[in-house]
Amino acid sequence: MEKSLKRECFKNYIPLLIGIFVGISLYITVGWWGFLIIFPWIGGSISIGLHVSKDKKGKGKDLGRRITILMILPVFLIFLGVIQRENLQLEESVFYVLLFLSSGLFIRVLIHYAVAKLCGPLIWGRGFCGWACWTAAILDWLPIKENRVIPQKYTRIRYLTFTLSIFVPILFILGGYDWKYQHVNESGGIIQEGKQGALIWFFVGNALYYVVGIILAFSFKKKRAFCKIVCPVSLVMKPQTRIALIQPKPTENKCISCNLCNKNCPMDVDIVNYISEGKKVRSSECILCGMCTHVCPEMAIKI
């Protein structure tokens, strides 16, 4: 029993160790001191969340994840957004990609997208959405007890917002907007700090996301309505999530089809269908929040 507790305690600190390793590796590779703050902070926040959850029961175990996602929020909004003036939203990243393709100028934000939303999902799927999204960090704490299913027809709106997120920056550039002058400072081919224009886009974009997210949450009686209906970033991670290394999967315990996992899933995944057939949950909507494992009375699901 004592060995089992020690093993469980050690597992909780693995995210912190990974964060330290990634932070040091990127610092050595890129040379920016900020990585020594960002990734250990993210890993440490996840470790704290796991530690908080270990003594909770049922849906109460989700408290740890919600604490984690709230702790990570200042890294993206305050440190990177306000202090460093780096906008990690999809719209701004389109500018960075175009700048890189046209001039070879490399921007740190591209590292974020590569780690969190392109390559990382091959390992943890949409775990970023469940544990690190700064928009969901607020939505997950809204005083909404219901978790209604979002009709399928509304989820297609994401494809429109994704298209707009890609083409609006391009239209700005085609219209003569000097994005490089307004947004970035060049130093040795790497952006060290954004300009005033980047900060304005940051505030406007995030404010819009929060306002729309909160309105949708109360309108549809679902905290994550924004994720299902509007969020364009989810589409970037969907293909990798289907083949991700880490996915909810059945245990040796038999599923009794009580449907509690489906009722409590914030992303409307039909978990019972996967687990009852002995399959991994390969849905591209899964955000690895772990709620299905928390509420299963038979412990028929694990991550």
Rank of each mutant, 00 (worst) to 15 (best):
Y13R: 12
I144S: 01
A198D: 10
N273T: 15
V184Q: 05
G104M: 03
G194Q: 11
R66S: 04
V75L: 12
Y159M: 09
L199Q: 04
E2W: 11
Y181I: 11
I214R: 08
K54N: 10
Y209Q: 09
R282N: 15
R148M: 04
L216S: 09
K263I: 10
E146L: 02
L164M: 09
V233K: 00
M267H: 08
E146Q: 06
I18H: 04
A198L: 05
E186A: 09
C227D: 08
R156Q: 11
K6H: 12
F106W: 09
G58V: 06
L122N: 03
E92Y: 14
L73G: 01
L139S: 09
K56A: 09
S257P: 01
L73F: 14
M299Y: 14
I190T: 12
A136Y: 13
I303D: 09
W131I: 13
E298C: 07
F226Q: 10
I28Y: 07
E91G: 08
G60W: 01
T241V: 04
G81M: 03
R158A: 07
C258Y: 03
D140Q: 14
C9H: 14
L70N: 06
I72M: 12
N206G: 01
R66F: 05
P74C: 10
P266N: 06
L245Y: 13
L98T: 03
L26T: 08
R156S: 11
V281R: 10
L88E: 05
F79G: 03
S102F: 00
L245W: 14
V281Y: 10
E285P: 00
I214N: 04
I72L: 08
S257Y: 10
S53P: 01
L142P: 03
V233S: 05
M299A: 14
P239W: 08
I42F: 04
G194E: 12
K180M: 11
F220I: 12
R65T: 11
R282E: 15
V269C: 02
A198F: 02
V115D: 02
R158V: 11
L122M: 13
V295F: 02
I38W: 10
L36D: 02
P169S: 07
Q192F: 10
F226R: 07
S219Q: 13
V269L: 08
C265N: 04
G290R: 03
T161F: 09
R108G: 08
P232K: 05
R66K: 15
K57H: 09
V94Q: 01
W134A: 13
I166L: 12
F167K: 05
E8M: 14
S219I: 15
C265D: 04
V82N: 02
G130P: 02
W41S: 14
C292K: 10
I191E: 13
W32R: 15
F226T: 10
I38P: 00
L16V: 06
K254H: 12
I173R: 01
E86Y: 03
L164N: 00
A136F: 13
M237A: 01
P232C: 01
M237S: 01
I275M: 08
G43D: 07
S45R: 07
H294L: 00
G60D: 05
V230R: 00
I287S: 01
E2G: 10
I46V: 14
P297F: 03
P143A: 08
